[in-house]
C-alpha cells in the first residue's frame, strides 16, 4: 500500500475515532435529566401512541401536574414534557418532536413562556436534551443565541468540565439509556412553604420578545390542528403572577388564536381547594399536595372536553397511580414526623 493511501486511511480513522469519542463522551458527560423538565430520555421510553393528553410549557407544568392523578380522574393517560422557563419557540419544537412518537388527543400548553427571553439559563437543558433530529436543529437556530450553538451541537465541549464528577450512573444512563418515568414527567416536590396570598412577579417585558413567542403560540395551534389534536392554552394557577396588564394581554392574545381553547386557571382558583399553608412548594409552584388537587381539577376539566375514548393501559397507570400515592404517603409521614 502506498504511503499516501496509508496516510489517508489513518486520517479517516482518526476522524472517525474522534467523532465516536465526542459522541460517546458527550452522552456520558451530559448531566442526566429524568425530572425537572426536559425529560426526553424517559419520555422516549414510553410505548408509541400510548399517551392521550400531553402537557407542555415551563416548570409550572412539570411541578404542578401529576399525570397519574389525571388518569385517576379522567381515565386518560397523560404526560408532561416541559422545560424550565421554556420560551414558546422551544415548546413548539417540543410539540413537533413529541408528535413523532405519540398521537395525543389533546395538548395543554402553559403559556408563561410568552414572557421568557430566548437566552435563559435553562436553554442548554431545554434544547440539549432533545433527540438529535431536525426539530432540535430548528430549536437551536431559532431559540438559542449564536454563542450557545457550539455547546448545543457538541455537548462534549459544553460539559467536558464534569469529567471529575462523573458517577457510575452517568455511564449507566449513557450506555443503557433511560428507564420510563413512573411519574410521567411530573417532578415530585415534597416540602411545603406557607404562602401569604398573591405577589406580583416582576418580569422583564420586551415587546419584540413577546411577539416572537406569540408567533409560536399560533404555530403550536396550527401544527396541533393539522394533526387533529385539540389545543388548550392556559395560565397556571399561582400566587406569583406577572402584572395584571401583562396577564390580560397574554389572555387576550391566547383567546384570539383560532382552533384553540383558553383557560386562565386563576379565575377558578377557589375551586381547586388549595390550602395556602401546606400546598405550595414555593410561591410559584405547588408541592405534591397542591399538584394533586390541581391535577384532580384538570382531570375533571378534561372530562368536559369532547375527546375520544381513553387508550390508557390500565395496569400501567394503576401502578403509576400507586407509585405517586406511595411517594405522597412517605412525604406525609416525613412532614408529620417533622412537625412532632
Amino acid at each position: 500500500m502506498s504511503q499516501k493511501k496509508r496516510e489517508s486511511i489513518a486520517a479517516i480513522l482518526l476522524l472517525l475515532a474522534l467523532a465516536a469519542f465526542l459522541f460517546i463522551g458527550g452522552r456520558i458527560l451530559k448531566p442526566k435529566q429524568a425530572d425537572f423538565g426536559s425529560n426526553w430520555g424517559p419520555f422516549l421510553q414510553e410505548a408509541e401512541d400510548s399517551i392521550d393528553i400531553m402537557f407542555f410549557g415551563s416548570s409550572l407544568a412539570y411541578c404542578d401536574i401529576v399525570p397519574a392523578i389525571i388518569w385517576e380522574n379522567s381515565g386518560y393517560s397523560a404526560y408532561v414534557l416541559a422545560g424550565g422557563e421554556q420560551p414558546l419557540a422551544v415548546t413548539y419544537y417540543y410539540l413537533r418532536e413529541a408528535l413523532r412518537h405519540q398521537s395525543p388527543q389533546a395538548v395543554f400548553v402553559e403559556i408563561s413562556g410568552l414572557f421568557y427571553s430566548q437566552d435563559t439559563d435553562y436553554l442548554k437543558a431545554n434544547i440539549g436534551n432533545m433527540p438529535l433530529t431536525a426539530n432540535r436543529l430548528h430549536a437551536t437556530f431559532e431559540a438559542a443565541p449564536v454563542s450557545e450553538w457550539p455547546a448545543l451541537f457538541l455537548p462534549f465541549c459544553a460539559y467536558h468540565d464534569r469529567w471529575d464528577e462523573l458517577t457510575r450512573e452517568d455511564f449507566r444512563y449513557a450506555l443503557l439509556g433511560y428507564e420510563p418515568d413512573p411519574l410521567a414527567g411530573y417532578t415530585f416536590l415534597s416540602t411545603s412553604t406557607p404562602t401569604m396570598g398573591r405577589v406580583t412577579r416582576e418580569i422583564d417585558f420586551e415587546q419584540e420578545n413577546y411577539e416572537h413567542n406569540l408567533s409560536y403560540l399560533q404555530q403550536i395551534a396550527d401544527y396541533a390542528t393539522e394533526h387533529d389534536v385539540a389545543v388548550i392554552f392556559y395560565i397556571a394557577p399561582s400566587y406569583w403572577l406577572p402584572e395584571k396588564k401583562y396577564l390580560d394581554l397574554a389572555a387576550a392574545d391566547a383567546r384570539a388564536i383560532d382552533n384553540a381553547i383558553f383557560y386562565d386557571m386563576n379565575d377558578d382558583f377557589a375551586a381547586l381547594g388549595i390550602d395556602d399553608s401546606i400546598d405550595f412548594f414555593d410561591i410559584l409552584h405547588f408541592n405534591y399536595r397542591g399538584a394533586e388537587k390541581f391535577s384532580t381539577y384538570l382531570g375533571h376539566l378534561i372530562c368536559t372536553l369532547e375527546l375520544d375514548t381513553p387508550t390508557a393501559d390500565t395496569q400501567l397507570w394503576q401502578s403509576r397511580s400507586e407509585y405517586f400515592h406511595q411517594l405522597a404517603a412517605e412525604a406525609d409521614a416525613a412532614s408529620a414526623n417533622l412537625s412532632q
Binding site: G25, A151, F156, C157, A158, H160, D161, W163
Partner: peptide, 10 residues
C-alpha cells in the same frame, strides 16, 4: 478536549 481549559465557566 476532555481536560483542557476552555468553554463556558472557564
Amino acid at each position: 478536549l476532555l481536560f483542557g481549559s476552555y468553554g463556558p465557566g472557564y
